[in-house]
Design a protein around this nucleic acid. Structure first.
Lengths: 143, 143
DNA sequence: ATTGAAATTGATAAGCCGTCTCAAGAACAG
DNA sequence: CTGTTCTTGAGACGGCTTATCAATTTCAAT
């Protein structure tokens, strides 16, 4: 019994539409992926190696890319590392990043999202996703 | 006589503050970098190899990173490649990116910027830079 | 101008991250 | 069940970026 029936359905739907198969690995990776807000392929690999020591890193990468295509995840580059965001669990969120201590605050702002839609529309675009990152100093590091 | 006295000053100021030196290569790379809106390290390398065939690729990378630290450039990852944006020449701008054909439209929106400031302030942050990318389909690719 | 300490450069080696390859195994329609 | 097709795991591979290091250049102090 999965704890994430909704996301599981999204995955199965995507698999069905693209002649892909439902595998034990994909189910396992999804289950662990959904436990976090965002994670790197490497971290997920380590978490899962306890559960299934034979799971390959390549499979993690392949599956995370699959999740991106299915709309369950979104890749995000933070400096040198690539984070895969869980976008299905809660709504899309953006990031405030302290360039000094590395602290990350997540936020959501409907007004900004609405303005983004307006900008896109006036340029003939239809937005699928977006990425907004604000870099600066947090209150602690400003001093 | 440089054609970019203002940016040159920003660079010299940064160099002075960090015990770094003003070199022929840094001047040359800055001059070419400022000619474009955004460019990859590889492209810049090719452009410059005509002017100075002995300039190394590593120096290009080092110098572009230096420009980022000085606030003259900003690195942006688009798919597999890294673009270095010229952020000093004109005001900061954001990007609309077509996920189908790769078309990039630049835009600027004061209202969004103002809201960003508000979000940052309410979280105790002071913004230095930001990055906003909207991904979707352009009018041509929507059909 | 000369000198000398410190930073920079160029060439290349090395590293990292993610993808590709391919034989063996698993899924699923008929 | 059976056959076809997709997936997996392991490691090789590839592109992009950084590290290494001896030779060179910068620049402040003579």
């Amino acid at each position: 019994m999965s704890k994430h029936p909704k996301e599981m359905d999204v995955l199965k739907d995507h698999l069905g539409k693209h002649q892909l198969k439902y595998t034990r690995q994909r189910e396992l990776i999804l289950e662990f992926f959904l436990k976090q807000e965002h994670i790197t392929a490497e971290e997920l690999y380590h978490q899962l190696s306890r559960k299934d020591p034979h799971l390959g890193l390549a499979t993690i990468y392949r599956t995370l890319n699959l999740f991106c295509e299915a709309g369950l995840a979104q890749a995000r580059h933070f400096g040198t590392q690539t984070q895969y965001d869980n976008v299905s669990h809660k709504g899309h969120h953006d990031h405030l990043i302290c360039t000094d201590c590395g602290k990350i605050v997540e936020f959501e702002n409907c007004d900004i999202e609405r303005l983004q839609e307006e900008v896109a529309a006036s340029n003939g675009f239809t937005i699928k996703t977006h990425r907004l990152e604000l870099y600066g100093l947090c209150s602690r590091c400003r001093h």
